[in-house]
Structures are given as C-alpha cells and as structure tokens.
Design a protein around this nucleic acid. Sequence first.
DNA 1: GTGAGCCTTCAGCTAACCCTCAGGCTGCTG
DNA 2: CAGCAGCCTGAGGGTTAGCTGAAGGCTCAC
Lengths: 218, 218
Amino acid sequence: MVVDDEPSIRDLLSASLRFSGFEVLTAADGEEAVEVAVRTSPDLVVLDVMLPDLDGFEVARRIDAPVLFLTAREATEDKITGLRVGDDYVTKPFSLEEVQARIRAVLRRTRGESAPASRLKVADLELDEDAREVWRGGRQVRLSPTEFKLLHYFMVNAGRVLSKAQILDHVWNYDFGGDAGVVESYVSYLRRKVDDVEPRLIHTLRSVGYVLREPPPG
Amino acid sequence: MVVDDEPSIRDLLSASLRFSGFEVLTAADGEEAVEVAVRTSPDLVVLDVMLPDLDGFEVARRIDAPVLFLTAREATEDKITGLRVGDDYVTKPFSLEEVQARIRAVLRRTRGESAPASRLKVADLELDEDAREVWRGGRQVRLSPTEFKLLHYFMVNAGRVLSKAQILDHVWNYDFGGDAGVVESYVSYLRRKVDDVEPRLIHTLRSVGYVLREPPPG
DNA sequence: GTGAGCCTTCAGCTAACCCTCAGGCTGCTG
DNA sequence: CAGCAGCCTGAGGGTTAGCTGAAGGCTCAC
C-alpha cells in the first residue's frame, strides 16, 4: 500500500511496484490510509511522513503492518525515532531501486524464518543484498553506493536489455537533473571493478542500452 | 509476557522481543496480567510497576514466574524492595539492548544448569555477558556502559549491516532526542579500544551503516 | 565539595564519492 | 572509406559522509 498526498509520487511508486509484481493499493491522506489498511490488511505500507491531515507516525501507530517511511532529507535525519522494529525509512528524493530494496528487506524480515537467501548470481558474479557484498570469481569487490545499486539493478534484470533512460529512472533519484552521461561513467566503473575478466557479462547494445548476461555455452 | 498500560511501550517491547525469537503475550493492566499469567504460565514477565489498577509488586506476588520490573528512574531506587530472588528491574526510559540483556540473564538464572555459556566471540574478540568483560586478542579491555552495549549489539548481529538509526533505536534509550552523531563517536571509541589491531572487525559502509565482521579468508 | 569518568555536541579535517566534461575510439551507414 | 553518432574513460572540481580531538555538562563516589 502506498500513501502520499502528491499524485506524482504515488503514481511513480505504485506503477513501479505493480511492474515488479506487487499488488498495490493507494491512499492520499492519513484518514484514508488507516481506513484502507484496517479493511485490507496490507503486507506493508509505504508511508509519507508529511501528510495533510495526520502525522505519518500517527498513522503507523494505528495500523498493523510494517511501514517504510518516506521522509524529506532536510527533516533532520535523526527525527526518525518512531521506527518500530521491522520498520525502515527512505529519504526523499529517493530512487526506485532504493525503495524496492528496502521493501524487500522489510518483507524478508517480517516473514521471519522463511527468509530466502538474498543472494543474486550470474555466472561467477555474486551479490549479497543483506551483507552488501559483491564477489567476482571468488574475489570480493568493494563498490560505492551508486555502483552497488546499478549492479543490483543489472542483476535483477539479468538477460534483459536496459536503456539508459530506464537505468536513470530506476537507479538515480527521481529529481536527478543531469543527462544519461552518468550512466556511461558508472557502467565504466563497474566494468573496471567487476567485469575485468572473461567471460564479459556487461554488454553494450549501441544506441539501445546495456545488458548483463552470461554468454551462451560454447 | 509484557505488561504495560502504555501501548507504545508495549508495542516497542513485544515487537523487539518477537523479532529476537521470543513468543510474546501482552496485558495492559494488573487484572489482565494475572489472568493471562495464571492461564499460560509464561517463562518470564516484563512488568511495569505503575499500573492503573494493581501495583506491579502485587501482580508479581500473584504469579509464579520470574519478573523483570520496569520502573521510572525518579522512583527512588529503594522502592524496588519487592524483588524476589531471580527477579530484576530496568528503569525507564530504557534501551532495548538493556531489556533484552536483563531478560536473558534472568532466564539463564532460572533455567539453572542448562545455562549456556554467555560468551560471544568473533575472531579474536570475545565478550562475556555475565562478567561484562571484553577481550581482544587475549588482552582484557575496559569499556564504559554505552560502549559495552554497543559492542554487544554489534556482536549479536555480527555479519549483519546495521544502520545508525537502527543502532540508535536499540542501544540508546527510547526517548533519546539527539542525532546519530553519537553513534559515530562511540564507534570511534570502540575502534580505539577493541579494534586497533589487524584484522579490523568494525567496517563502515558509507551512507549505509556499520558491520562487525571477520574478514573473509583470502 | 571535588574530582573522575562518562555522555553528548561540535567543528575541522579527510577521504570517498558523484557528476561533468572533453578527447579519443568504435562501428555503423552512406 | 569517410563521416558521424554513440560510447568509453581519464581527469578534475564540488560535495558530503564520516572520523576524531576538544570541550562542556552531568552523575556519582568519595
């Protein structure tokens, strides 16, 4: 369930989550959020802290589901004290990668023991979401936050061609004003750090995009 | 079992304990507490001294389980005279680390001989919960109370990445109003005292958090 | 009262990180 | 084969997160 009074944010999130296979309900204010949450018992609520009527923390108190808070970065980061165990928060402006990663982490935690090992693997490239570790051919690699998010996006979509615009929309904050040149830079960084051995996994499709894929056998 | 008339405290504790693997029942007043305790025979009761109906000590007298009392700091310590052998108390506002540590200590005592050695170990770093002692590479290290709680939290969650917000929520009192800067200070203190030799165990993940972990072989 | 240890804040510094840009390379296409 | 658009990557500047030394206030024991 997604709760935010700005339609653009609401749509951005709900579309992105639906595309990833989630069933999504939305609400535009606190009253509606509580009403819908009580009626439908969502697995998780993405909740803006600043709502026109109720405070986000107040809403959280009234519903019985883990919450991922959305909060402005300016709103002194430390004021996030309403967090119950299992909750988490993301600061605006966020990237979709960020939000989805947090959502999956919260769900994994609340679902308890049935937590699947959060490990992605393509050929001899491995990524552990929890530990934030990346391995190529058995050797650990250190990545910066953006590099990590980008590689994660590639690995979740392994075998699928991703345009630079798509990458920008998912990995960078939604208010990013620059051009797609950054993507090229970061792909370059990634190649140097995790794709400097055979077989090459990150491939360029000129004027189309990039794809991370294991070369066919033979 | 958790007994407190304030829902926020009740939820905070029960969520935290459930997350740690305990089965938790709750009660909001003395009558309910006695009723539930008699019916279910909990292993331990976390019990607020100030309840709307019965006095906490009165409740304790009527149930047959060790008790961890919650009491206001103002309530001059001599008021805690109702303690039976095996009981213990924590003053409000508490930290979750504090409460969990006391709970485990009480359970260990009441369970008798089957008491597991309360000793945590990561690489050549060791921490004894009972003795409140810490060793690094065979040499004992003196830690302040907060340093000890922080290190304990790190060691219980060895290998897991902890955000500063998470650390603040668990190690500091729930009413702490300051910002996450303290965490940085204390990590710095800990590093100086217990992580000044190779291999380094406390690692910073920029803009994500910290993790205590043994470096991988090789 | 006094001092020691402890907790917290703060500010200066450093290193890491993010982004831009430009020059050069690649591989299409005419 | 020439030209061009797209892509790669090294260099550099601005920014930020985190580290740590210093200082103030607090509590508690003596």
